[in-house]
Amino acid sequence: MIWGITLILLSIIAVPSLILAKKPNAKELLEKVEPYQGWIGLVFCFWGVWGIITALLNLGWLTSAPIWWITLLAGNIVSAALGFMLGSGLINKLFLGKNEAAQAKAEELRAKIAPKQGKLGILGLIVGAWMIVASFMFAVV
């Protein structure tokens, strides 16, 4: 159940990017939210990767609880992807701060993925809600 709740919280953070991408002053607003979004994104990216590893380590659940295993894997893939998207700005600042060419390319990439972030956030809300329901119906843990 905690996986679903955290995925919903992460998705709520990601969905405003879809709205902000349509506003003319979106860049300024995204820059204000970026420091918090970045750290949250990095944490959830690692959380999602850990969940993917957990699902793969518990591959035996595929025979005893296949719906739960697929739900766990799907939720953590979405969590890792959303976390990576939200954390991309922080990654640019921490690792690409001195290389202006790489930073410009990263900003271009970020502009391309911003609309997808909102759609993935909506998917995260749906998958997170299903994870909560599935945790009561199919949970092995």
Rank of each mutant, 00 (worst) to 15 (best):
Y36Q: 02
Q37G: 02
Q37C: 01
G38W: 05
G38K: 08
G38C: 07
W39V: 11
W39R: 12
I40F: 15
G41H: 03
V43Y: 14
V43C: 10
F44M: 15
C45I: 02
C45F: 13
C45G: 06
F46P: 04
F46M: 14
G48N: 07
G48Q: 03
G48Y: 05
V49F: 01
V49C: 01
V49A: 01
G51M: 02
G51K: 01
G51V: 12
T54W: 11
A55K: 10
A55D: 09
A55F: 02
L56E: 13
L56W: 06
L56S: 14
L57C: 11
N58T: 11
G60D: 11
G60F: 08
L62F: 13
L62I: 13
L62S: 09
L62G: 07
T63N: 15
T63H: 11
P66G: 00
I67Y: 08
W68Y: 15
W68D: 13
W69P: 08
W69Y: 05
W69A: 06
W69T: 04
L72D: 11
L73H: 09
L73K: 08
A74G: 10
N76Q: 12
I77W: 05
V78L: 09
A80L: 01
L82A: 01
L82Q: 02
G83V: 06
M85V: 08
L86N: 12
L86M: 13
L86I: 00
L86K: 10
L86V: 01
I91Y: 14
N92A: 04
N92C: 04
K93S: 13
F95C: 11
K98G: 04
N99D: 15
E100V: 06
E100P: 03
A101F: 03
A101C: 04
A102C: 03
A102E: 07
Q103Y: 08
K105Q: 13
A106E: 07
A106G: 02
E107L: 08
E107C: 02
E108Y: 06
E108I: 04
L109T: 14
R110P: 01
R110G: 12
A114K: 12
A114H: 00
Q117M: 15
K119W: 15
K119S: 10
L120Q: 03
L120V: 14
I122H: 03
L123T: 11
L123W: 10
L123G: 02
G124W: 06
G124H: 04
G124Q: 04
L125A: 03
L125H: 08
L125S: 02
I126K: 08
I126G: 05
I126A: 12
I126F: 15
I126S: 11
V127Y: 07
V127A: 07
G128M: 07
G128D: 03
A129N: 05
W130K: 00
W130A: 10
I132E: 00
I132A: 04
